[in-house]
Amino acid sequence: MYNSRIVGLGKYLPDNVVTNDDLSKMMDTNDEWIQERTGIKERRWIKEGTEDTSAVMGAKAARIAIERAGLTKDDIDFIVFATLSPDYYFPGCGVQIQDMLEMPTVGALDIRNQCTGFVYAVAVADQFIKTGMYKNVLVIGAEYHSGGLEKSTRGRNVSVIFGDGAGAAVMTREEDNSKGVLSSHLHSEGKYAEELIVAGPSIKHWVPEILEANDPDDTSYYPYMNGTFVFKHAVVRFSEAIVEGLKTNNLQKEDIDMLIPHQANLRISQFIQRKFGLRDDQVYNNIQKYGNTTAASVIIALTEAWEEGKIKEGDNVVLAAFGSGFTWGSVIINW
């Protein structure tokens, strides 16, 4: 059985920077209020009239990752695309990537695990490679949040958090079982699904109802989050997933060279950092610049940490995420 390893990374962020002061012109909020609760200073939102969508941004990041891997589009055997904001209700973005990159008719799979999406996607790709079914798998996380946010005082608790962006990784076969993805750990607890949710549109709340109702008080189409409840669960599950991964590989917290947490809230990341006694240079955060980009956040942060030389060969890298579902998980990598 093979291991898998990441050999190419890429990211794409829209040019349009939206600061906290910009948001204060749309809703009753301010820079101090947002930074105190989330750590976010600015985010990227797709500007109206541009070509960017989740799939388009994913394709842009993918081209960079494939080139950095020293491969071509024809070398990719399979596509895994993680997002909660697909271009269409169906089909998924994975097949759009196959078309946009003019790839052979390879398989494409969409992952709908929200903030944990990229961690799940890496685990899925790893299994395809481990079994020998595929050699090179393209994994993408991309989100277009800004088009679905309620940009008003009523929606501010959610709208100030989220940003748009995409990241991509090329994973390939690794014959040295001490290198690459060592293990992945995935969990869910669906009884809390409604604590972080977009309730509509859905099969239960479908197009005729939308068209007929035209109800300005219907908020089911906007994200809802029970923030305090989510925070309390996140800090527990983040820790559990990291500990589980370390124990599986006979590692101690002192063996972590780089932790890449999902960029949900800077306060969550700081809590986890303190709990594990990690230095600032052992944890990578960029939520200050980009907000929460959900399935794209871990891969964007991983790409930036690698670009900045903060991840080196032989480093123990931990990816961890928690989000809607609830879902959570971790991936342990020897780089």
Rank of each mutant, 00 (worst) to 15 (best):
V235E: 12
V230G: 00
H145M: 12
N250E: 13
H187K: 14
G167S: 02
V236Q: 05
K179G: 12
I140C: 01
I256F: 05
G190S: 14
F238T: 03
V207A: 15
M225A: 14
L149R: 05
I242A: 06
H145L: 09
A213T: 15
D255G: 11
G147E: 05
I210F: 11
G141P: 01
Y221E: 02
V236E: 12
K253D: 01
V170M: 05
E174F: 05
N249M: 10
S202C: 12
I197C: 11
K247E: 13
D176V: 11
G147K: 15
T172C: 11
L251A: 06
S178E: 13
V235Y: 07
I161E: 00
V236G: 04
E209H: 13
H187Y: 08
L186Y: 04
T172D: 09
H185I: 09
M258L: 14
G148T: 03
G141K: 08
E212L: 13
P201I: 12
N249Y: 05
E240G: 04
N177I: 11
V170N: 09
N250K: 13
Q252V: 03
V243H: 01
T248H: 07
E174H: 08
A168Y: 02
E194Q: 08
E240A: 03
G227A: 10
Y144W: 03
I260Y: 06
A234M: 09
S146C: 14
Y144F: 14
E209R: 11
S184P: 04
E244H: 06
L259F: 10
S146Q: 03
M171W: 06
A193P: 02
I242F: 07
A166Y: 08
E209T: 15
F238S: 04
A213D: 12
G163D: 08
S188P: 03
E194V: 02
I242G: 05
G148Y: 07
L149H: 09
G163V: 04
L149Y: 06
H205L: 14
S146E: 00
R173P: 00
E175K: 13
V170F: 01
L259Q: 02
T172G: 03
G163C: 04
H205V: 12
V158Q: 10
V181R: 00
G245I: 13
Q252C: 03
V236S: 05
I203K: 14
D257A: 12
T228E: 13
S152F: 14
V170D: 07
V243A: 03
A241F: 01
V160I: 15
N226T: 09
D218P: 11
W206N: 14
F162A: 03
A234F: 04
E175Q: 10
D255R: 10
I161L: 07
L259Y: 04
K191H: 07
E212M: 08
D164T: 01
L196N: 11
R156N: 06
G147M: 07
I242H: 12
K191C: 05
R156A: 14
Y222I: 00
L251C: 06
I210M: 13
D215G: 10
Y192H: 09
V158Y: 04
D215M: 06
K179D: 02
K253L: 00
H205S: 12
I210V: 13
L211A: 13
S159Y: 00
R237H: 11
G180R: 13
F229A: 09
V243R: 00
K232A: 10
N177S: 10
V235H: 07
E194F: 09
E175P: 01
